[in-house]
Design a protein around this nucleic acid. Sequence first.
DNA 1: TATGAATGAGGGTTCATTCAT
DNA 2: TATGAATGAACCCTCATTCAT
Lengths: 211, 211, 211, 211
Amino acid sequence: VCDAARDEPRSRRARLRRERESRILDAAAKVIADKGYYQATVREIADLADVADGTIYNYFENKFDLLIGIMSRVAELERLPRELTEALETGAQSFFVAAFHDRMGRIRQGEEALKAILPQVFVHPDLREQFYRQYVVRIATRLEAYVQAQIEAGQIRPVDVPLTVRLVQSMFVGLLVLRILGDEVLRVAWDDVPEALAELVFDGLSARSRE
Amino acid sequence: VCDAARDEPRSRRARLRRERESRILDAAAKVIADKGYYQATVREIADLADVADGTIYNYFENKFDLLIGIMSRVAELERLPRELTEALETGAQSFFVAAFHDRMGRIRQGEEALKAILPQVFVHPDLREQFYRQYVVRIATRLEAYVQAQIEAGQIRPVDVPLTVRLVQSMFVGLLVLRILGDEVLRVAWDDVPEALAELVFDGLSARSRE
Amino acid sequence: VCDAARDEPRSRRARLRRERESRILDAAAKVIADKGYYQATVREIADLADVADGTIYNYFENKFDLLIGIMSRVAELERLPRELTEALETGAQSFFVAAFHDRMGRIRQGEEALKAILPQVFVHPDLREQFYRQYVVRIATRLEAYVQAQIEAGQIRPVDVPLTVRLVQSMFVGLLVLRILGDEVLRVAWDDVPEALAELVFDGLSARSRE
Amino acid sequence: VCDAARDEPRSRRARLRRERESRILDAAAKVIADKGYYQATVREIADLADVADGTIYNYFENKFDLLIGIMSRVAELERLPRELTEALETGAQSFFVAAFHDRMGRIRQGEEALKAILPQVFVHPDLREQFYRQYVVRIATRLEAYVQAQIEAGQIRPVDVPLTVRLVQSMFVGLLVLRILGDEVLRVAWDDVPEALAELVFDGLSARSRE
DNA sequence: TATGAATGAGGGTTCATTCAT
DNA sequence: TATGAATGAACCCTCATTCAT
């Protein structure tokens, strides 16, 4: 009986905790994206998150752990949505358009986080591993299965599947990088990218294709 | 007696200087590529270059200047070679293959330097600007002219030229990134990339294309 | 319903409080003895005592106060026991043996507490004062009186009483230190120390003495 | 020929280096002896030594290494002097007096260093090991050999040699501790300690000894 | 010009203590 | 009264840069 009332505060505590952790990660993503990981100081992140320096260490092991936290949160964005799964059943190109749309949207959403993480990805093995799995392998696997199936269905011509998929992957990664680098053409035409990409990938540039 | 060396021709001194500068840049590229810019210490670079810490500051303004130096040296790799210029005259696809081959080769050559620079590109505006011009704009400009010409020649179907070129650029950048990230598929099949890329870009994946 | 416990007799509360305080001091002595005062964290002590960090501050002013508490508790060990007082009446050497036995035993008992306190004794004036009074002066006073009496009784030859007593005191302190430092010879032969000590102090090492 | 002149600066450099290291150790010993190891800040030591914080790290690995340095310097004080070795040849008691004199002198000389080190000796295994070897084992070994020889020569009566030596050792250690604790009796009568100690150890307190 | 020791600002991290619940 | 999260002062150490030799 005594502890009945405690349930409410416990959840309140938990909510407060989640909120605070989120505030810290937001602040970290912003500051690190702006200045780079090593130029960003924990102090500055704490200030922006409106907590004390020490508080950050109640939520994260150390400064680097903030990067991990940022990346993990981006990972949650990455769950495959229903519409995309449905598109897998339908025809080839519409799937691609849908998939591309999906990825472009995610890239835009997680841009700040990605900007914070990407430079360190090249440097830190752990982060690289995680990034690679999350942004390359996971999608590659799915694409490979898809391309293979479409080849068997006669929709896609026979190609070296893994290599081809890597090339498509490269485009995604490259688009991510160019966007982060601030390419104006891409920023302006971002919403047209999926269609253009699908056309490029399916029909190529050659005038003779598509008749 | 001690000053005997002073009588030597100026050119010898100049050569020594160039050699030393080169040794320093080599060392810097290696150490920074390995550990990342901020984890690489000037001391370590000096040790590897077999000079004293202070000596580095006779050749470079400061630590960051080493990055600029590394990038500039890569830029020299990038001069457009004769064969590529010639290819511009010939047919569409063969140009692409040649151009792709060229770029893949450069990426492999300058891999260490790129690995050293790339992470900082995202962070430092100056470097970003230089990288962007060198790796994106310069090639984009040439590609745009080329694609435009091919469209007019009826070899390439009408497309949004700047956007399409960006997509192709993205592939290059993405391939660079994936290679730096250590992708095994790409490392093994690196020499096949140009052809596969050309096929993808020209003919697309669709079974109906190419008849 | 929740407050049912409040009706309980005050003594129960008091007992609970004493128990808890004791648990905290035990934990503090153990952790501080292991790691040293500054390496021991309040958190760790709290964990070992199975209370929250903050609780400790309901029992002790601050971290340093724990040391005071530990030392005070050792002081309780130090009350002169009956047998020892009786020995004062009897002959010289048997008193010493008894007294030495007594001290050796106490040292062994309070070893952990002493190990926790001793290093800080050298540093902190308050602690030093208390330690000095408790471990040196208190015993010195008694010894001085005793030696003086024995001299007058012709049992002990005329010596510089305060200095001699200091020398004997030094042995006790030194034995304490060596034991804490983990001297193997002493650890093994600890029970033989009192007799050996008494012999040394009374008869000396010289072969000519004692016949 | 060119390098002839360098010899002089090299030795000058070396001298400067030794001087500086010494200044740092002096400062460290003083500050640490005053406030204790953990309360002493590197900044404060640097200030007293009149160097920059960072300079200390050109001479010592880290803060703890200062303690090692202090102890090592004390160790140099500890080389057995000629006169003591000679005393080994002569009669029993005179040796002791000489040896005691020697030790009392060293204790007084190295008092500050010892005060700095001793508290940490209880806490840090490495330091403890070194202290133990330097202050206990080294002397114990020599004493044991001596006592054994004197027993065989009939000068000292048969005793448990290792234990007896430990007891004498304890007195030294205890005197060191009491002096550091600031005992007034000892401070005033310090020069009388060797004789009193020798008398106590050789003849004991008993009135019947010495007839 | 090369050297490498001295410099000292700067930052990640710890942890005793407080206080709202 | 017990809790344990928040606090923020304090400190060791690193390392780019300078400069006397």
